[in-house]
Amino acid sequence: MLLEVRGLRAYYRTLTGYVKAVNGVDLQLGEEILGIVGESGSGKSTLASSIILPKPPLRIVEGEVLFRGERIVAPSDTSGLTRVRYRHISIIPQYAMDSLSPTRKVYKIIKDLARGLGDDVLAKARRRLRRVNLPERVLDMYPVELSGGMKQRTVIVISTLLDPEVLIADEVTSALDVTTQRAVLEMLRDFKDSGIVRSIMIITHDIASVYQVSDTLAIMYAGRIVEHGPAEKVIRDPLHPYAQALISSIPKIGIHYKMQKLKGIPGNPPSLRNPPSGCAFHPRCSRSLDECSSREPRMVSKDGRRVACLLYE
């Protein structure tokens, strides 16, 4: 296992109480592309933050994150992260458009970030830029001079420059048009296939575009993973009622569809300040049992994947 998340709870501290954004997540990541899918507010981006940048107001309350068996994140101890950031675990952040300081040229940003790693970093950056179809002169430009798509690709090049084992891609497609989205996802696939990175965690609310490049899919709801398994299986035959509702609401797989516009599931996403008791999905679930409101479902193996639902316990 490259990355392992165990019983992780990560809360945002606000002046009016805790927001339980990640509320008990177990996850293993091997050499694969894992798509983590959920509505906005399901805690998926917080999961990314708690793996690579757990800092206030976000607090790791419980659980741990291991990289190659070594602990890198635990409550009140994130010192292990300093060894692995960038070189071993890297991230393409959610807001690629302003991820680069506007007053530094791209080459300077790269040199500063990869400090102490030799001069060939820039030569490597040139090769990588060509790989993502960007001209080398991008290095001599200020981020403000790049278009949105160019910025996105530049950030991808920077994030993967040190060939990290694990790459977290947080909502990389949300600000892009459909064609560019596809190109970016295929770029990630290419990075994986050519061995530049060994595993990728793609975090998105857009299940329709991500499932085609993913090996596995994990569906998140109210800070928890409700179903996790091979992408084909999850898409063809979802087990969890939320996953079923989610996937059935896509009119035809392959057609671009954003989950924000989901009309298929009645009710509203739950509040993460006071999530519903028991299974957080039970107020919206059409198949809920009596005990769903009182008992938290455990993650169980079923039909080649993991699912957290009392129907299968």
Partner: peptide, 22 residues
């Protein structure tokens, strides 16, 4: 966001500060 990105990529506090200052 650029400060967060730099921090996520392991940049030191001094470096991030120098960018913020600029």
């Amino acid at each position: 966001n650029y400060s967060r990105y730099m921090e996520a990529l392991g940049a030191g506090r001094r470096l991030i500060l120098s960018y913020a200052f600029r």
